[in-house]
């Protein structure tokens, strides 16, 4: 009998040898995982997992995979919150499974579901390839052809960009953004991760391309209503809204919403920047 044939509340007993391992707290966690494939049946299956000191939700998923349900699919890699692979939704919140401690969660069953904004592949694994397609649409870093190397860039010119380089592409921001999640505007909206990328290129002192118009038109920057959910879920604590999206909106406003600069451009042929 497959796991999906069992009732959602069915309980699996933990393996005896695991109970003897060090670090066990003696408590049991009810882990409810959404299992399913596209077009097939989906069910929330409950597992009983022994709680270990310092346990993260990914540990609990691994316990299930190793001991209770070897069929459970979950993408992960580093288990150090640096690869961005184990993104999922725990109790309805988009998080990294490897960075979410069980003892930080409210008492009671813990629900784990796949990212809602991306097509499901199987169980907790989703297809995030659309993000890479968007990435290809953004013109890469381009320096002036006559800008000879090696470059010497003063620290102050590059300070802002370090924050953007912390992005681990977990796509939690893309998942939580209501424009992609609720309105399904993947065909006309880049999403927070790619506004961060555009901002990192636009603010680069050696980049000479202007991506503002493309970000406004194809990227749908105007759809963003800056509700800051992307910032709230970022595991790298990147201030996506304040440091990337709003500065981009202001740069677009320089072109489209600033009569003073418009007159300056007409009279003197410069932007006034």
């Amino acid at each position: 009998m497959s796991v999906l044939d069992q009732p959602a509340a069915s309980v699996h007993a933990p393996a005896e040898d695991v109970l003897t391992a060090s670090g066990l707290t003696g408590e049991m966690l009810t882990l409810r995982v959404l299992k399913g494939v596209p077009g097939g049946e989906a069910a929330e299956v409950a597992y009983q997992v022994p709680v270990v000191t310092g346990m993260v939700v990914l540990d609990a998923v691994h316990y299930v995979q190793h001991n209770l349900d070897t069929d459970l699919a979950c993408r992960w890699n580093c288990k150090a919150a640096k690869c961005g692979s184990c993104s999922a939704e725990v109790n309805g919140h988009p998080v990294l499974l490897c960075k979410t401690r069980v003892d930080d969660l409210p008492a009671g069953p813990v629900t784990v579901r796949p990212l809602k904004s991306f097509p499901l592949i199987k169980d907790l694994v989703t297809d995030v390839s659309r993000n890479y397609e968007v990435n290809r649409e953004i013109p890469p870093f381009t320096a002036a052809p006559d800008d000879g190397t090696p470059w010497r860039i003063p620290q102050q010119d590059i300070d802002r960009l370090y924050e953007f380089r912390k992005c681990i592409e977990c796509f939690l921001c893309q998942d939580v953004c209501h424009i992609l999640r609720s309105h399904d505007y993947a065909d006309r909206f880049y999403g927070p991760r790619f506004f961060v990328r555009v901002a990192s290129l636009e603010m680069h002192p050696k980049d000479v391309l202007d991506r503002r118009e493309q970000t406004r038109e194809q990227g749908g920057l105007g759809y963003c209503n800056i509700t800051k959910c992307c910032t709230e879920v970022c595991p790298e604590h990147i201030h996506i809204t304040d440091n990337a999206i709003i500065p981009l909106k202001e740069r677009v406003a320089d072109v489209h919403w600033d009569p003073v600069r418009f007159v300056g451009r007409k009279l003197f042929g410069r932007s006034g920047d």
């Binding site: 609720s182 505007y185 105007g222 759809y223 209503n225 879920v233």
Partner: peptide
């Protein structure tokens, strides 16, 4: 309520235009 909170579904599903 656009959205009312993060990862919370929106009550009204109509054509969204944001700040465009």
């Amino acid at each position: 309520w656009d959205p009312p909170a993060c990862a919370v579904g929106e009550l009204r599903h109509r054509k969204y235009r944001g700040e465009t």
